[in-house]
């Protein structure tokens, strides 16, 4: 790890100011960034911890029925506090990593990093959630732009994520055997006006919607609706743990299971 300055501001404004300095880097729960630093693969001059900002922490239900989660809220908190309002999201949070990860990692950190095998991006995208930053509100469909790539600008902080709560939803994760990240994760969310399906882990493009499945499920919300669909192996991740064809197959299997579990 290289030397760096460390600050832990207590307001968003102070954090934004701190991030304005050259080579400053925001730090959520550090579940990706700290290992990266330890391997000397990043050398920020300053780490700006966001987990001391009270206004960025917590889970609350809004008047319109949607659920807001502060960007610095850890997974364990979401697992317990979102359970009544949005059980599928809480279940997703409860199965990220292990207890240590869940008590450190934050939703803002995960969504900002946009790891192609992370769980949260699928929930944000399938829910049609809104990513709220210190500057603006970004619709999920505009936010995710390919693996490790998002609409966030330099120094922009995710202060919260606002989730519309679907009528029914479920997340199915098939774990990569070593990392236990999603080898394929599928989040299905059924709203009054249609179904959204987001896939994580599988694609070289990162999290994405499976629009054919959305159309089929919007017409017939049952596992059988998936049977006639095919998923192309093109652009799927092909690695030590599975071929693109296997991942494409798992997308179907996990989607059907998510629908069945809704």
């Amino acid at each position: 790890m290289y030397d760096f300055e460390f600050v832990k501001p207590s307001t968003v404004a102070d954090a934004v100011a701190a991030l304005a300095s050259d080579e400053a880097q925001a730090l959520g729960g550090g579940q990706t960034l700290i290992p990266t630093l330890k391997q000397r693969l990043a050398s920020p001059s300053k780490l700006v911890s966001l987990i001391g900002i009270a206004e960025m922490k917590g889970v609350c239900k809004n008047d319109d029925g949607s659920l807001s989660i502060g960007g610095a809220t850890n997974h364990a908190t979401v697992a317990s506090e979102a359970a009544a309002t949005y059980p599928a999201l809480a279940a997703l949070a409860a199965n990220i990593g292990d207890p240590a990860v869940r008590n450190r990692g934050t939703i803002g950190g995960s969504v900002a990093n946009n790891d192609p095998a992370a769980c949260y991006p699928s929930a944000v995208l399938a829910s049609g959630a809104t990513v709220i930053t210190n500057k603006r509100e970004i619709a999920a469909d505009d936010y995710f732009q390919g693996m490790f790539t998002t609409a966030l600008e330099e120094g922009e902080i995710i202060t919260s994520v606002r989730f519309p709560v679907p009528q029914a939803a479920n997340y199915q994760k098939f774990e990569q055997p070593a990392s236990r990240f999603a080898m394929v994760g599928v989040f299905v969310a059924k709203f009054a006006d249609g179904v959204r399906v987001a896939v994580t882990g599988a694609s070289e493009e990162g999290v994405h919607r499976w629009t054919e499945a959305e159309a089929a499920l919007s017409a017939n919300f049952s596992p059988d609706a998936i049977d006639g669909l095919s998923v192309s192996a093109d652009g799927m991740i092909n690695d030590l743990h599975g071929t693109g064809a296997y991942r494409a197959h798992l997308v179907k299997v996990m989607t059907k299971r998510a629908v069945a579990a809704c």
Partner: peptide, 18 residues
């Protein structure tokens, strides 16, 4: 696992499944 260039593919617990 190694790739054809002798790079160790399973060089951490991210890829080596204990």
């Amino acid at each position: 696992a190694y790739d054809e260039n002798g790079q160790l593919l399973s060089a951490s617990y991210m890829d080596y499944a204990m």
